[in-house]
Design a protein around this nucleic acid. Structure first.
Length: 719
DNA sequence: TACATTGCGATCCGT
DNA sequence: TCGCAATGTA
């Protein structure tokens, strides 16, 4: 069959070794997505496997869609009935599918991080105020770490030793109870629940694992323990698991991904066959060699030698600039050159960065040049306030137990129900052991609530009842319009009349349009499934590269993509590697992998830019060149400016520059070797031009160039 | 008691 | 820059 002729020999082996566990170690650009698609095609084509027997897990919904399309183009439209999706969407599907037989409510709500934060804040309020240290987000991430290790609250409490863990165990327990009360699942639950159910119920395990006779997982290096366990359970009967991954591209350990999954695969799945694919088809020799040289500095990795038959190509352009503005200008000007001189189109180009905040300066520069771009990420559509408000109404209609959503909308738009009423309702609900909605429905019996407010609450109840009947009939798009209209949300926004409100109105309309689009596309559209879909939607899922636009995204979002030309912006100590990672070797290694992922997105051209000064929160951050740049052999690099030499390599012109990041901001304390300790009164300009006015006391006020003055930051304690 | 305003603090990456 | 918490005002 000519399906196999288009593959190299290890690829072909990976495609045709259909039985038993298989680990494919495929480096950047070696065609691992291709292998997966061909493998599925091989199974459902020549092998005659029913598409229903195949389960393919990808990292994004977008990748799942592309996989499906590729399979379709190889073997025709047999893809129907094939389960291709992300871990989270597949698990949500399994949960709804099996819910009834397990006595589990299928109308659960999926809580995103905002909902989780709202819930944990409630927990913190009710729990006694024993020094609950840490932000809600911090607590949640610790809970998530424990939870994705499949450790239940009771177990965690039992083995908790320190005060800190005991405290966390209490919060974890209360948080879990809160989720159950609200009939809600968080992202971890989506994986953890099916695992628990499969472990506890042999019949279920037989049924589900018997269904998927061939399992494929993409980006295996980014799976966490719960996901590993899920795969282990699902494949326990037949062992037909094919995991594809690259430990050098593991960039989600901060989120609980465990690279041990890929490193221990052979041990965990006895009889594993390992296939390495080391020929890269993507990048030039130069880019590949540079990336390899950098990643070799990581200690914890499987050694591998990627090679390519591609041309040597151009050197990697490195440009030092003085500010974000200059960085943006450099990027825009260079893109214009690539278009003019090399015939690149804008969709061939991506600008990648470590943090979303970096996009603004790039966007400004591109806009100034009149260069169209598409931004992936930033504030997401479904996280906008107005969208979350409308969605909260929909959630309450589907899942009346969801008090987090209910709380959100009870007084939105404002209808005269304030904090005090809210707390009365809540304590009543707790006392009577009923849901918040039931408390509202029965508010006539709550003595503390006055007749005026009772009336308002009754109005709210009939509003919800009306919407419930609207939800029962008619389309989802229509329902959204009805919700927006009947709740007074539209009128509320119209009354404001600000440009901001106009934009919000537009977004609400777009939500309805999105729902209509969903209804056309889905085989069996339901409100539950629509809500699930938008909960699990990722920024990158909405990206399409068909237009004539430059793509802007974070390094994380760029995983799995490729472009002819790639810009890495902000290749600086403190940004890449990020300053929060500097303390810990393992985290620096993850930053290095991130750099590696970024560089290997490029097929022909790569550019790195370094801004030696960036605007911080209030002042300026002075930055030095990333260590990762120094790890690239000089013969692969071409310096496009001399700033790099002056600041990065040579240290400073005046010998005072320490190479460390210093923060200059108004009000900060600084130290000077001659003048002693002083306080910054003003800042102007940036980079080389950054001048600061420092008051050293005793009428000694100096206005100096920050960079060359030999100023050092001073701890609060020293002052 | 509800709602507007001000001020402050946090800011990495994202299912 | 933005969202949230504390504060002020009707």
């Amino acid at each position: 069959m000519d399906l196999l002729h288009e593959l190299n020999s290890p690829q072909r082996e990976a495609v045709t070794s259909t039985e038993g566990p298989l680990l494919v170690l495929a480096g950047a650009g070696t065609g691992k997505t291709r292998v997966l698609a061909y493998r599925i095609a091989y199974l459902v084509g020549p092998m005659g496997v029913s598409p229903h027997d195949v389960l393919a897990v990808t990292f994004t919904r977008k990748a799942a869609g592309e996989m499906r399309d590729r399979v379709r183009s190889l073997v025709g439209d047999v893809g129907h009935g094939m389960w291709i999706g992300t871990f989270h969407s597949i698990c949500a599907r399994i949960l709804r599918y099996e819910a009834r037989s397990l006595g589990f409510p299928p109308n659960f709500t999926i809580y995103d991080e905002h909902d989780q934060a709202a819930l944990i804040k409630q927990v913190l309020k009710t729990e006694e105020k024993s020094e609950t240290r840490g932000s809600p987000a911090g607590i949640l991430s610790r809970i998530s770490a424990v939870k994705s290790q499949l450790i239940r609250p009771e177990e965690f409490r039992a083995r908790a030793t320190g005060h800190r863990d005991t405290e966390l165990a209490r919060l974890y327990e209360a948080y879990e109870a809160g989720l159950r009360e609200n009939n809600a699942l968080d992202f971890d639950d989506l994986i953890v629940m099916p695992v628990r159910l499969l472990r506890a119920n042999d019949q279920l395990l037989d049924r589900v694992s018997g269904r998927f006779r061939y399992i494929l997982i993409d980006e295996y290096q980014d799976t966490n323990f719960a996901q590993y366990e899920l795969i282990r359970l699902l494949s326990s009967g037949h062992g037909n698991v094919c995991a594809v991954g690259d430990d050098d591209q593991s960039i989600y350990q901060w989120r609980g991904a465990d690279v041990a999954n890929i490193l221990n695969f052979e041990k965990d799945f006895p009889g594993t066959r390992v296939i390495r694919i080391e020929q890269s088809y993507r990048s030039t020799k130069t880019i590949l060699a540079a990336a390899q040289a950098v990643i070799k500095n990581n200690r914890r990795r499987k050694d591998k030698e990627l090679w390519t038959a591609n041309p040597v190509g151009r050197k990697i352009g490195v440009n030092g600039v003085l500010s974000e503005e200059e960085e943006g200008a450099f990027v825009a000007a260079t893109i214009a050159e690539l278009v003019k001189d090399e015939g690149k189109t804008l969709s061939d180009v991506a600008v990648l960065y470590r943090t979303n905040a970096q996009s603004r300066a790039i966007e400004d520069a591109l806009r100034r040049q009149g260069m169209p771009y598409i931004l992936v990420g930033g504030t997401r559509f479904y996280e906008r306030k107005e969208i979350k408000d409308i969605v909260a109404y929909l959630r309450v209609l589907v899942n009346p137990a969801d008090s987090i959503s209910l709380r959100r909308i009870l007084n939105v738009p404002p209808r005269g129900i304030g904090d005090v009423t809210m707390s009365r309702l809540e304590s009543h609900a707790v006392e009577q052991d009923i849901s918040l909605l039931e408390a509202i429905e029965g508010s006539g019996r709550i003595g503390e609530i006055g007749p005026g407010i009772r009336r308002k609450l009754a109005d709210f109840v009939s509003l919800i009842d009306g919407l419930k009947s609207a939800a029962a009939s008619g389309s989802i798009g229509e329902l959204i319009s009805t919700v927006a209209e009947d709740t007074g949300y539209i009128a509320f926004l119209e009354d404001q009349g600000t440009p901001d409100a106009v934009a919000r109105l537009e977004n609400v309309r777009e939500l309805a349009a999105g729902a209509y689009e969903y209804e056309e596309r889905a085989e069996e559209p339901t409100l539950e499934a629509f809500l699930e879909e938008i909960s699990l939607l990722m920024d990158i899922d909405m990206w399409d590269n068909t237009g004539e636009r430059v793509s802007l995204m974070t390094l994380h979002n760029a995983k799995g993509l490729e472009f002819k030309a790639v810009f890495l912006a902000g290749v600086e100590e403190g940004l890449l590697p990020h300053h929060t990672a500097l303390e810990d070797d393992a985290e620096v290694e993850e930053e290095r992998r991130l750099f590696y992922v970024g560089l290997t997105r490029a097929r022909e051209r790569a550019f790195l830019s370094i801004a030696t000064s960036r605007r911080g929160f209030h002042g300026f951050l002075t930055r030095s060149v990333s260590r990762f740049l120094h790890e690239i052999p000089p013969e692969h690099v071409e310096y496009l400016s001399d700033v790099y030499e002056a600041y990065g390599r040579g240290g400073a012109d005046d010998g005072n520059y320490s190479g460390e990041e210093i923060v200059i901001q108004v009000g900060a304390w600084v130290k000077h070797p001659d003048w002693g300790i002083g306080r910054v009164k003003a800042c102007e300009g940036y980079g080389r031009e950054l001048r600061v006015t420092v008051d050293f006391g005793h009428n000694n006020v100096k206005k100096v160039l920050a960079r060359y003055a030999g100023l050092e930051p001073v701890d609060e304690g020293e002052v």
